[in-house]
Structures are given as structure tokens and as C-alpha cells.
Amino acid sequence: MATSPPILPSEALRLAADRLASARRSFERGERGLRQLRRSRIPFINSLRNTGLTYVQARAKYDRCLDEQQRLHQQTTHALSYAERLYGTLCAQINLDEQKKAA
């Protein structure tokens, strides 16, 4: 079984930075989406009522949609936190390695 060559620290840092940037974009999209969903509560419920649902059914459907979006956003928040920690760890490790080389 062949093993892949180790990743250079600079390449690992670039990959971590890309992951962090992607996680930030996803987090920001989620924030905007949740704000928009909350602002559009009444029109959302009314549009569901136009499909024949009662107010209670439409409100329950909106609430489930909001809960699901909040759950997904929580996952994105965790992914962002992990990406920030990973990037910070790699930066600290590279700085430590550079300090050892300089000494």
C-alpha cells in the first residue's frame, strides 16, 4: 500500500485558509437567510395558507422550516469554529517551527 507524501506546512496552511474562508461564507449566508426568513414570517405563512392550509398548519410548517434552518446554521457555526481553530493551530505551529530554525 502506497502512502502519500506529507503535506508541506505552507500547503496545509493554504488549505486551512481556504477552508476557513469557505466556512465564513457559509456562515454569513446562513445569517442572511435566517434574518430574511424571520422577517418574512407573515408573508411565508400567508403564502402557505393560499395553498389551502389552515393558519395553524401554515404556522407549524413555518416553525419547522425555521427550526431546520437554525439547526443547519448551528452546524455551520461549528464548522466555522473548527476551521478557525485549525487555522490558528497551523499558524502557531509554523511560527514555532520558524522560531526553532532561527534559534
Rank of each mutant, 00 (worst) to 15 (best):
E68H: 13
H78R: 10
T3L: 14
A2R: 13
Q70K: 04
R19K: 11
P5K: 04
A21R: 06
N46R: 15
H78I: 12
A17Q: 11
N46A: 11
G33E: 14
Q36M: 08
A92Q: 14
L20E: 05
R14P: 03
I42A: 11
R49Q: 15
L8D: 15
E68D: 13
R64S: 09
R41S: 07
R14I: 05
R71L: 14
F44I: 04
K100R: 09
Q93K: 12
P6G: 13
R41E: 13
R25L: 14
L90R: 04
Q74C: 10
Y62P: 03
T76K: 05
N50G: 08
P9D: 13
R24H: 10
L20A: 03
Q75T: 11
E31F: 05
R35Q: 12
Q57F: 05
R59Y: 06
A102R: 10
L48G: 04
L34G: 04
A92D: 13
R49Y: 07
E68T: 08
K100G: 01
P43G: 02
I94Q: 05
R64A: 14
A103T: 09
E98Y: 06
Q57R: 14
G52N: 07
R19P: 02
H73K: 02
D97V: 08
S26K: 04
E31K: 05
S26G: 12
R38G: 04
S22K: 03
S40P: 00
M1L: 13
L37R: 12
R14A: 15
E31I: 06
R41L: 06
Q36R: 13
L90H: 01
S26M: 09
T76R: 04
P9A: 12
A16W: 02
R25M: 13
L34A: 06
L34Y: 02
R29P: 09
L66E: 10
A58G: 07
L96M: 08
E31H: 03
G30R: 02
L20G: 04
L80H: 00
I45N: 01
Q75M: 10
G88Y: 00
Q74F: 11
I42D: 13
Q57E: 15
I45E: 02
Y87A: 07
R35N: 11
G88S: 08
M1I: 07
Q99P: 00
D63A: 15
A23G: 06
F44L: 08
Y62V: 08
L90Y: 06
R49A: 06
P9V: 08
Y82T: 12
A2I: 10
L80Q: 00
V56S: 15
T89G: 07
L80A: 03
Q69V: 01
G88I: 02
L48E: 00
L66Y: 14
D67C: 01
P9N: 05
T89R: 13
L90K: 00
G30F: 03
S47T: 13
Q57I: 01
Y82F: 09
Q36Y: 08
A92E: 12
H73D: 04
R14S: 11
R25C: 07
L48R: 13
R38S: 07
A12G: 10
T89M: 10
V56A: 15
S10F: 09
T76Q: 04
T76S: 03
I45P: 00
